[in-house]
């Protein structure tokens, strides 16, 4: 009997609390609306400023590229007093970003929720693994660019991209490409783009996905032939004379003692580039004044010396795009990727 009593009280208290809870949230909503109207009236003066702490979602686990970008930029923005409100990073990990994007889709209309993303926000929806793509959010600003690299073992028979592609044109099955992520994602697609530009039959490319740094291991021990990855991942291996880079995916040669020795694909006559951009987004229907505010702040961040240090430590490149330009860039990029995935039979 007593036990039943314990159960009963538990349930009763919860229903009570839940009722309070829903009231509370609704009154909260009221508050936010009030603030919004205030903000709107402020907007007449042309200014919008955040009225509460800002949440930045990294749609991945702690420690990855998105997480680092979110944390380091929040750190610089608050430390250099560019933004006075607190900026908290929240990890919404899972499904290659889709969990985080679904969460952001629920924040529609909020002016205090941002998130960081890169190419997967185009690729994952195309692979049929996310309901939401960049169209469902408000692009605010791009801040960073990474470039891809194609590396082979030091003693590999190819010395440039054309030699590799010549062999692949003859027999695509004779070469194994290794990358960290699954087919249809970045490592795979960046290689396919260049192979396609060179005239290789891209449907026959042999691609192996190897997580946990398996890619560099497999190229070093000869299991796989070409490592398709980011420039930063291979620079040290090249410096130590273990790998050589056949090409980087940037338009022009990169800066840096080692990096500047890597030839671009363009200078080898293959007219193709690939940039792994990374930037910030807001939820759908974000107040245009707020977008303007964040756009300016990220511009400030991008131009700051403190962030330049961060960039150079991580080997990131500067690539600022404002909201409008960013959106247009994303639309074009998505179309491009769509046609490649279609050809590969990976489009869902």
């Amino acid at each position: 009997m007593k036990k039943l009593l314990a159960l009963l009280i538990f349930v009763l208290m919860l229903t009570f609390l839940a009722a309070c809870g829903s009231e509370d949230t609704s009154s909260n909503d009221g508050n936010t609306n009030d603030e919004d109207t205030k903000e709107n009236s402020g907007e007449d003066n042309g200014e919008w400023t955040p009225s509460e702490s800002i949440e930045i979602v990294a749609p991945a686990g702690a420690g990855g590229g998105w997480d680092t970008t979110a944390r380091m930029s929040a750190q610089v923005l608050t430390e250099e007093s560019m933004i006075d409100q607190d900026m908290g990073v929240v990890n919404k990990e899972g499904a290659g970003g889709a969990i985080g994007w679904a969460y952001m889709a629920e924040q529609e209309g909020s002016n205090h929720n941002l998130f960081v993303s890169s190419s997967p926000i185009l690729l994952v929806p195309l692979n049929g693994q996310s309901e939401y793509g960049h169209e469902d959010f408000t692009p605010i600003a791009n801040v960073i660019a990474d470039y891809g690299a194609f590396a082979v073992a030091k003693d590999a028979k190819w010395d440039n991209l054309n030699e590799l592609f010549e062999d692949m044109k003859e027999d695509p099955q004779s070469v194994t490409i290794v990358g960290t992520s699954a087919p249809g994602s970045m490592d795979h697609i960046q290689f396919v783009r260049f192979a396609k530009a060179a005239g290789v039959d891209i449907t026959k490319i042999k691609y192996v996905s190897a997580p946990d740094a398996g890619g560099v291991t497999q190229v070093l021990n000869g299991s796989a032939d070409v490592f398709s990855t980011g420039v930063a991942e291979v620079a040290e291996q090249v410096r130590a004379d273990k790998l050589k880079v056949l090409a980087v995916t940037s338009e022009e040669r990169l800066d840096g003692e080692v990096l500047s020795t890597f030839p671009t694909a363009k200078e080898q006559g293959i007219d193709e580039t690939f940039v792994n951009w990374r930037g910030f987004f807001g939820p759908k229907d974000m107040d245009p004044a707020a977008v303007k505010y964040y756009e300016n702040k990220y511009k400030e961040l991008s131009d700051s010396e403190a962030f330049a240090d961060v960039r150079s430590n991580y080997g990131w490149n500067e690539m600022y795009m404002g909201s409008e330009e960013y959106k247009q860039f994303l639309d074009e990029e998505k179309e491009n990727l769509q046609s490649i995935l279609e050809e590969l039979g990976l489009l869902k």
């Binding site: 314990a6 538990f10 208290m13 919860l14 609390l17 839940a18 809870g21």
Partner: peptide, 19 residues
């Protein structure tokens, strides 16, 4: 997620032990 970690956990530990 509705009521939050503190409230739920306090209630849970208390009532589960009592139960």
């Amino acid at each position: 997620e509705t009521l939050g970690f503190i409230i739920m956990t306090v209630l849970f530990v208390y009532f589960c032990s009592w139960f």
